[in-house]
Amino acid sequence: MKKLSGGSIWFETPLSVSAFASAAGPKENDGPLSGKFDFAAEEPCIGEDSWEKSESSLITKTFGKAIEKARLAPSEVDFVFAGDLLNQCVGTVFGLRDFKVPFIGVYGACSTMAESLALASVFISSGLGQNAAAITSSHFCSAERQFRMPVNYGGQRTPTSQWTATAAGCAVVSPKAQPPYITGATFGTITDMGVKDSANMGAAMAGAAYETITAHLSAHGTHPRDYDLILTGDLGVVGSGILRDLLHKDGVDISNVHNDCGLLLYDLERQDVHAGGSGAGCSAAVLCADILPKLQCGELHRVLFVATGALMSAMTAQQGESIPGIAHAIEFTSKVTN
């Protein structure tokens, strides 16, 4: 493991994602990735009597499924890095409460999956154990009531707004020799472009995605054409456009290899999600349900996963503060190349 420029890390000995699992709500499982999730809820409440418990249930199911696939008992998991969008990360805390696993709570808003994965990789790469899990979730209803309005309230969403995904993803990082591999990571910097509209998260985060992608490419000496896919999450329509414009100004064209988790999870026209999906669980679930399997079977070879987060609270938004963004990157490969 080697520290490169900026917040970049290179894993000389790549790590393996030995198992992964995903969960999704009914709307998410009705989208383009239908049928790819390990668990798909039939109703948003997932049989629970509060939205917070519904979100915790996503975490419990995803983690349970991932360690089952990895053939691990909870006691064999050395560390769990996990987080969600709720205050004090209660979705994760209550979801993992009964597993009795060493728990490291992570908050990176919607960038949490990449942040958790990077931390898990660093721990395993340092020789601190054999299995570290990264888990992230979000739930439309628990997020709505915390950040916006009650679910039954009849407010109209603006065209730039994004739909918080009811979804979760879990990946177990191990020092094994099986694809998909993690070969690098970049921790991003807090980037505030002065966007104040909390109904336009993509715009608030696109600047951070630009910074992290630029830093990662420069530190690792790579070019967008070296990747099959540069996957941001979740910039949506607006943020993706801004990101491409920003990179274009530097003479970098990513349009052939770029896609966004917020655009992959939903059918934008049919499912009426306006500018796309968002929420910490969106990129986590898209990664674990769609991207990691494709890396595992060799359909994708090299992927840069850049999860983006908006580091605001409902309170700072009311106080008129702008929305700082952050993005963390993880580089995946299907083969180890030396």
Binding site: K27, E43, D49, F140, V151, N152
Partner: peptide, 10 residues
Amino acid sequence: KRGLNCKAAK
């Protein structure tokens, strides 16, 4: 009941 509220989010 929340069962109805539950469906509202679909």
